Amino acid sequence: MNRTLHINGLANVRDLGGLDREDGTMSPEGVFVRSERLDRIDPEGWRALIAYGVRTVIDLRRPDERTGQIPASIKHVHVDLDGDDETVFWAEYEADGRWGTPLYYLAHLQSLPHRLALVLDAIAAADEGTILFHCSAGWDRTGLVAAVLLRALDVTEDAAVVDYLGSFANADTMTALHERSFEVEERQQVFRRFGHTPESAFRDMYANLDLDSWFSTSNVTASTRVAIETWRGAAPELGSSNRERILD
């Protein structure tokens, strides 16, 4: 299925549902939506997101990046996934460009587990309804959280790769909408320097993403772990007619 949502003001937005799982089922629709920044969503776009079921927005950006307003009917949660003060960790990855790729994901999970734990706790504590999570481009921080959620539900490696590569496919549309470059060629150059393509880098990371080990050493509660591994109790339920209406 095409999981893209057609929302005025977004160019890199999609439901994490409809992806193949190892047991032959698919990830449930209407639980998680990933996107880029929300600044350009117009009133019609917000109405569509609310009709889709979005009740919580989780902004993964650093404090100095946060922009834009959302309707009062949607709960707005800020969680700094990077860690604005984690300068020692980021120095190496910012210097060589890996900060904008999945090449940093596993190190982030190992060195800064409390950062992801904050995001997962926010997901577990969110109000009933669809959760939209985003960063600036909806590419890398959003991609890390998406990878964790997909791995938690045993989404297949191939399906997870397709989801990740969707941001590359959307790059030109994002550039036109947001009037800025998303540095696709620069990302490609970083991958090549480290012997990868976008697909191989994500695939290698996803294959080595051991959530059982991460959960066993993190400080998340048992209830948060259950919420993540069951997608807030939604798996394997399907989406509603509202979701089907605006999914292409």
Rank of each mutant, 00 (worst) to 15 (best):
A152Q: 00
A169C: 03
D158G: 13
I123D: 15
E128R: 00
T142A: 10
T156I: 09
E128K: 07
F133Q: 07
L112S: 10
S167Q: 04
R180I: 11
R180V: 12
L116D: 00
A176P: 09
A126H: 00
L118T: 10
A176Y: 01
M174S: 12
A147Q: 03
V162P: 05
V145N: 06
S111V: 14
L116V: 07
L177G: 03
G129K: 04
A126K: 04
L116R: 00
L150D: 10
S111M: 09
A124N: 11
T175G: 10
L150G: 07
Y164H: 12
C135R: 03
A171E: 11
T173Y: 08
L120A: 08
E179W: 03
G143L: 11
H108I: 09
G166Y: 12
G129T: 02
D121R: 01
L103E: 05
A126N: 02
L132I: 07
L153P: 01
H108V: 13
S136G: 09
A147S: 13
L116A: 08
D158A: 15
A171N: 14
G166T: 10
R151M: 03
S136V: 10
V161L: 13
L165T: 06
H178P: 04
D158R: 15
L118V: 06
L106Q: 00
L116I: 08
R115L: 14
D127H: 13
L177N: 07
T156Q: 07
P113H: 02
G143D: 06
S167E: 03
N170E: 08
A125C: 08
F133I: 05
H134F: 09
